[in-house]
Design a binder for these strands. Structure first.
Lengths: 210, 210
DNA sequence: GGGCAAACGCAACCCATGTCGCATTACGAT
DNA sequence: ATCGTAATGCGACATGGGTTGCGTTTGCCC
């Protein structure tokens, strides 16, 4: 559940007829400027002019191609979702859930790492476009996480019709609640607790459908 | 966990020497205008001029007293936290947890009810002032919720050193994750599942300290 | 009821954000 | 090489959010 700030290198810009040229360079430069702007000033301090200066791309171009900050954020988020992340595979459901929870904690350990993911959530409140991109991002991430449950079922650690989607969300939910809503600090102990709670509920059949 | 939009009627404006006069009327009018603006246009569409027009208070006054939108949101959130809400008391831990979860679902059932609470979270990403207000709001809310756990302990339904704070957060966490982060729909069935998961984990001792 | 200070209204103003028309560059294909 | 077109650069301009100085009103106290 991390790596949101890492970009899957070079992909043809969608909807253009200049796949390998200036357009692609512009897009990459802009995306980098957005991410560096986020870690420098956070989302509230991110401005189009900053991106223009730090990317060497003119303000007008940014508005034309992306339509504004929301579009820039949505695009950056799309790119962030195209990495090769896969959930941990420790050999046991307990280990996997704990590792998942710890990845969340690590991803938000320091300010600079947390800036981009936090900004994506912030942007989702400002524009439907960014909200869609965020929904898609997390749908994909959690979908990959379900492999953890599939393996657990195969090992006999979980009921066959366990609600995998709910289970993997339950692991990170308490952490993200604190990160984005109640704004309380999170740490490794809380990650362990989250994993333990989800595991206990699984064993008790609370995630089993009907 | 609801009633964020309801205001505890009339309280002297803090830090002023005009407790019952124009100042208080202004404050009330402004707070109402903010809330109606939120349900009309949502947080991204809320503007100072809208509040000025719909409250009859001049733009300049709004900037002077509240410092901008963030201040208005923080003030409205402070007021929202001063209600008389108490957690449900159904006679059993299971009933209480389910009732809590259902309150969350109900509070976000339709767009107009959800507007204000959602906007408060949105504002918390924009300004530290609003973030502090939100933290305080939820700290108070969850603190009240712990009464549910206290009663359960007295009834022998839960271990004596159950982590009440974690338990009450665990109930609403999956719901709020979907509301604010993954932006998936929530319903009564999900509320039941959340409560069931938290209950099962409690019975298994996953919330017991050490 | 008179006087004082706080709170507010008002209009003009400043500045950043976002837009527009046109010139220029770079890509891709012939 | 050359040409057509998409993409970008550029500066001027419009728009609106936010600020400032000053005059006016309101509430409180004597």
């Amino acid at each position: 559940m991390t790596n949101e700030g890492v970009h899957a290198d070079e992909r043809p810009a969608p909807g253009t007829r200049r796949p390998g040229g200036r357009t692609a360079r512009t897009r990459a430069a802009v995306r980098d400027a957005v991410l560096s702007g986020l870690s420098d000033h956070g989302y509230p301090g991110l401005t189009i002019e900053y991106v223009a200066e730090h990317s060497g791309v003119h303000k007008t171009t940014l508005y034309r191609r992306w339509g504004g900050l929301e579009g820039l954020m949505a695009d950056a988020l799309d790119l962030a979702g195209e990495d090769a992340w896969t959930p941990p595979d420790t050999g046991s459901l307990e280990g996997d859930l704990r590792a998942l929870a710890h990845e969340v904690v690590d991803a938000f350990a320091d300010e600079s790492k947390a800036a981009a993911p936090t900004a994506f959530v912030a942007a989702s409140f400002q524009s439907p476009r960014a909200a869609d991109a965020l929904r898609a991002f997390y749908a994909e991430r959690f979908s990959r996480c379900e492999a953890v449950v599939t393996r657990a079922v195969e090992r006999g650690e979980a009921d066959r019709d366990t609600d995998a989607a709910a289970l993997v969300r339950a692991v990170s939910a308490p952490l993200m609640l604190r990160l984005f809503v109640t704004r309380e600090p999170i740490d490794a102990a809380l990650a362990d607790q989250s994993a333990a709670v989800a595991l206990a509920a699984t064993r008790a059949g609370a995630f089993t459908r009907r």
